[in-house]
Design a protein around this nucleic acid. Structure first.
Length: 206
DNA sequence: GAGTAGATCCTCT
DNA sequence: GAGGATCTACTCA
């Protein structure tokens, strides 16, 4: 691998912060997976925060604890991947201290390394903006599935880097989350953070 | 370009 | 046994 200096892997302590703080800090960072010698990475451009027991949209709302959601109660810094609609794998970062079940859903990245492998995994023939737009596509392109739940995010197989790049403050958009209408009033909470105008952000451009 | 239906399977009641 | 933190293709205009 190349120069290490400019690329700083985010430490486990970063993920112990609240989901909202982590979510605000993630756009612009680089998500990397290294599986079977295949390295793929992309710059995060869209995330959503799920703030735990008080958040109707979160799997852990009301302190619900099941075999599936158990990993959300771990200390921040591990992956939570689960299957949605029987088709899509959704990749989350568990955040907050132990027994505070929060998470951040990664919804969109801008591909950087391993684009050829992403095409193979997704079965696409050209690298257009649909390659890694939307949480289902992100997981597919990075080769993530439910078995990757509990993988440490400060290890070698999966991590997030800070390469010093920063989006301008005015490019960071905030909006309600997507697909959580069932959550009542909580569906309106401004917990989605995205880069305005970026083609890898799901939903309508603004 | 906008709206809608169908895919598909694991998890919890 | 129901339903879900979604995506794509197809229709109609």
């Amino acid at each position: 691998m190349g120069l290490k200096k400019a690329f700083k892997k985010l430490p486990a302590s970063f993920y112990r912060l609240d989901a909202l703080e982590v979510a605000r800090a993630l756009p612009g960072r680089i998500l990397v997976t290294d599986r079977d010698g295949i390295r793929t990475s992309g710059r995060i451009v869209e995330v959503e925060a799920y703030t735990g027991v008080n958040d109707r949209a979160a799997h852990s709302f009301g302190g619900r604890r099941t075999p599936r959601t158990e990993v959300m109660y771990a200390a921040g810094g591990v992956a939570y991947v689960y299957l949605c609609y029987g088709i899509h794998h959704l990749f989350n970062v568990v955040t907050g201290p132990e027994d505070n079940p929060q998470a951040v859903l990664i919804r969109g990245i801008e591909p950087l390394e391993g684009i050829t492998d992403m095409l193979l995994r997704t079965g696409k023939t050209k690298a257009d903006s649909t390659l890694t737009r939307g949480p289902g596509n992100v997981s597919r392109a990075l080769g993530l599935h439910t078995a990757d739940t509990r993988t440490a995010l400060d290890g070698d197989r999966m991590f997030i880097m800070d390469d010093g790049f920063r989006y301008a403050d005015q490019l960071l958009g905030v909006s309600p989350r997507i697909g959580v209408d069932y959550a009542g009033e909580d569906a309106q909470l401004p917990y989605r953070f995205y880069i305005k105008g970026n083609p890898y952000v799901s939903g309508k451009p603004r």
